[in-house]
Structures are given as structure tokens and as C-alpha cells.
Amino acid sequence: MKVGIISFAHMHAHSYATYLQKHRDVQLIAVWDDDSRRGEEMATAYQLDFYEDLQVFLQSGIDAVIICSENAKHKEHVIAAARAKKHILCEKPIATEIADAREMIQVCKEEGVMLQVAYPVRFAPVMENVKQIVQSGALGDILAIDGTNHGQMPGGWFIEKELSGGGAATDHIVHLMDLVRWMLQDEVKNVYAELDTRFYEMEVEDCGMVSVEMESGVIVGIDPSWSRPKTFPTWGDVTMRIIGTKGTLDVDVFKQHALYYNDRDSKLQHLPWAVDMDERLIADFVQNVMEGRPPSITGEDGLRTLEVVKAAYESHRLKQVVTINKVHFSS
């Protein structure tokens, strides 16, 4: 199977490229980037052909694309790839506007190509265990989940609203929301959020808290803040406390690490030894394409989490709880 990468704007592209190259059924052959210097550098680093023209790239013999462009460009790139009949793995969030996400899903359906959204945390072995524990009933009925997806401030285009669609809320609500929907097989009923820019001087929000009620009545707290200090020993965290009628489960997804007291750079660092979730996400996508299976994480999964992000912004504006009006598809 031949694969190309559309843009290295999102840093996850490096990890995906590495694991695509390691995969024995995959030939990573092409890269397109609207930043031609970056594109050429990546072409050299990963020994790929660089294309300046997206249409020529799409005709280079690839079967599938990985899209790691800036959030606001996902729509253009997904639709172009779908029209060229390429299967797609799109970095999260699926899009910056609900209407865009809907159109992307529609076009992929029309063209008969697979659209998978990259929520790698589902593939962290820790999360697979947690999902199994939750679904086994060992915790009883789930009553509440309090989660964090903290990060350090990423900078670059992530803090330019026209490219990212928003700051910490756009970047970090979706991961936890996707995990909650996936584990509980439940949808969001309403959302309340307090957002703010308190850590850095910039246009987009860098912190906040989100309070969600699911259709089942489960209550969820999400802290999406870019509040990790520069001295924090790693990029951030994904944690959850899951409260069930029979017990509470404390989850720290990236807790499998050694601590490195690094005198060379005067900092403390995590040295993770867990199985890499990106490798498993890539393997899953490749297998789905090769076997003609439906995507593990659908465009609709991407859309549902985007709806929560949009509701959080609206709630922040209105200072009110916002009820989700789910976009439905005519099939």
C-alpha cells in the first residue's frame, strides 16, 4: 500500500511518518506541503518525493493520505483527497467549523473513500484496559468522569485563530470527549465552559474548564488548559477519574515512564516506556484500508467532538449551559 503525507504543519506528522516507514505493508512515497521549504526538508529526511502541486501529488500512485495540515485547511485537503479517491487519515480536530466537517463526511461518502480521524489515545494500551474495565461492569454504572488533557503552550499556528480555529479548547477538549463517547457509548447532552487567556499574551484562549452532561446523566469535567509550566517534565497529560456505583478508577494514561533528572540540560524529564499509541493508530488505519474495513474512528466521531468544542465556545460567550443540537445526516 502506498501512502503520502499532506503537510507537516502538525508535529504528529513526524511520528506518523516514522511508523509508516516501519510498517512492512506500507510504502511511504510522497509528501505535499504548502510550505515548500518544509516539504523539501521532510522529503529529504524521510526519502520521499516532494510535490508542490496537490493534484500532481494525488496522482502519484498513492492509495491513502495522512493529513497533518493546519486545522482550518483539513476541509480543503480532505475533499481534494476524497475526490481523487484516496483513503484518508485526518489529524484531529476534524475541522474548525461544523458545516465543514459535515461536507467532508458527505464527500468521502459520495466518493466511497474511508475517512478516519486520528484520536490515537484510543490506541494507548492503558486506555484499552480502562475501556474493558468500564464495559465489564466492574465499576458498576458510571456516574461521573473528571478528566484533564493538559499541555504546554504549543505556539506556532496553534495560536493563530484563522489557522487553528481556537486555542486550548479546540486543541484539547476533543481527546477526552472522544474517549468518553467511546467508552460509554453515550452522547453529550449539554455543555458549560469558562475559558480565558491567562498564561500568555495571545489572541486565543490558553485555559479553561468544561462541564458536560451526557445523555445518560453521567457528568464530565474536562480541563483542556495549556497550563503545564515550561519546567514540566513532559508535554502534558491525559488523566481521568471514573466514578462508578461500585468503585472509582484513577487513570493516568502516560504514567508508564521513568524519571530522568537531567543535569546536562538542567531539567526533569519523563522517559516513557509504554507502547507507542501512534504506531498502533497507523497500523489500524493501514489494516482498515487494506482489508476494506470501515474506519475505527469515523468522521462522525470527529464531528460529535467538534460540536462539543463549538458548544463550549458558545457557552463561554453566553455564560449559560448550551444544549447540543446534533447534526444529522440523510442517508
Partner: peptide
């Protein structure tokens, strides 16, 4: 401003599981 949600449940042994998130 205060936003709060709570959940309460009585389990088989009669214990009350009671949990709240306050912003």
C-alpha cells in the same frame, strides 16, 4: 459565578455514592 453538577446513587449495601464537580 458558580456552576455545579452532582450525582448520587445508593448501592446494594445501602452506601450512598455521592459526587460533584463545581466550577
Amino acid at each position: 459565578r458558580v456552576m455545579a453538577r452532582e450525582v448520587k446513587h445508593m448501592n446494594e449495601s445501602g452506601q450512598i455514592v455521592y459526587y460533584a464537580l463545581v466550577m
